[in-house]
Write a protein that binds this DNA or RNA. Structure first.
Length: 233
DNA sequence: CGGAACTCAGAGTTTACATCA
DNA sequence: CATGATGTAAACTCTGAGTTC
């Protein structure tokens, strides 16, 4: 099978979209929504104590009694770059790495942890989407292959119309409706009855369907390659 | 060995913010 | 310009598995 582009555990995602999904210049939208929320400059990553202070202030001056408005941090390009870089090296962090990275990025360890969680989720989602696309394409090709085989069966059926009557050398009785075929391997003339043709047809359909169903559980195997169907003697 | 306490990752959800029609 | 719809990502909750005591 055409191997999926990536190993299952390591997907190289360059989701680091130019501009990182936010406007390149990080326009400060100012405070919104009536509440007097402290205007956090998203370009300036607050120091750890600043974060804590900010959240405490929010609790105090929350507009809706008790429930402080959740602030949203936008990571800077540099922070995103560093996070992506360490994600490439490791998809999970141990506490020590997490702490070090948080220190380096001037973020809380919890934020680094959340980022990695979300990043893993995005990675998995992307991979699933790619697999889905791949399965769709394969299903299409299998359907086409199935159609071809069905057509072939129809042609074979058509060929057996008005077959020459074959008299059995043993009983001197005419043999049942059948077609004479030459086996390409042993070069022996054999008879193929209608039942055999239909059986073969059913087999082909079943095999195709079976392959399709096993596919979903076996993405990444070489099952895609269609094998030449050699008729056994 | 069983169970409580803890940590951690994954899945799903909520929410803030940016963008676009 | 204002506005609603939509997408994205940070942050959240919940749950289950693993570990330690």
């Amino acid at each position: 099978m055409a191997v999926l582009p990536t190993g299952s555990s390591h997907l190289e995602l360059t989701i680091s979209v130019p501009g990182f999904a936010s406007s390149p210049s990080f326009p400060s939208s100012g405070d919104q929504g009536g509440c007097t929320v402290r205007d956090l400059d998203i370009n300036q990553v607050p120091a750890e104590d600043e974060w804590i202070t900010a959240s405490m202030e929010d609790e105090e001056e929350s507009c809706n009694n008790g429930a402080p408005p959740r602030k949203k941090l936008r990571l800077t390009k540099e922070q995103s770059r560093l996070l992506e870089e360490s994600f490439r090296l490791n998809h999970t962090l141990n506490p020590k790495q997490k702490g070090a990275l948080a220190l380096q990025l001037k973020l809380r360890p919890r934020q680094v942890e959340v980022w990695f969680q979300n990043r893993r989720a995005r990675s998995k989602l992307k991979q699933t989407e790619m697999e889905c696309e791949y399965l769709k394409r394969w299903f299409g090709s299998l359907t086409e292959q199935n159609r071809r085989l069905q057509r072939e069966v129809e042609e074979l059926r058509a060929m057996k119309v008005a077959p020459p009557t074959v008299i059995s050398p043993h009983s001197c009785e005419p043999l049942p409706a059948s077609t004479l075929t030459m086996c390409p391997r042993c070069e022996r003339v054999t008879t193929t009855t209608t039942a055999a043709i239909e059986k073969g047809s059913a087999k082909m359909t079943a095999a195709t369907n079976r392959t399709a169903t096993t596919l979903s559980s076996k993405v990444g195997t070489s099952a895609l390659q269609s094998r030449p169907s050699s008729a056994a003697c």
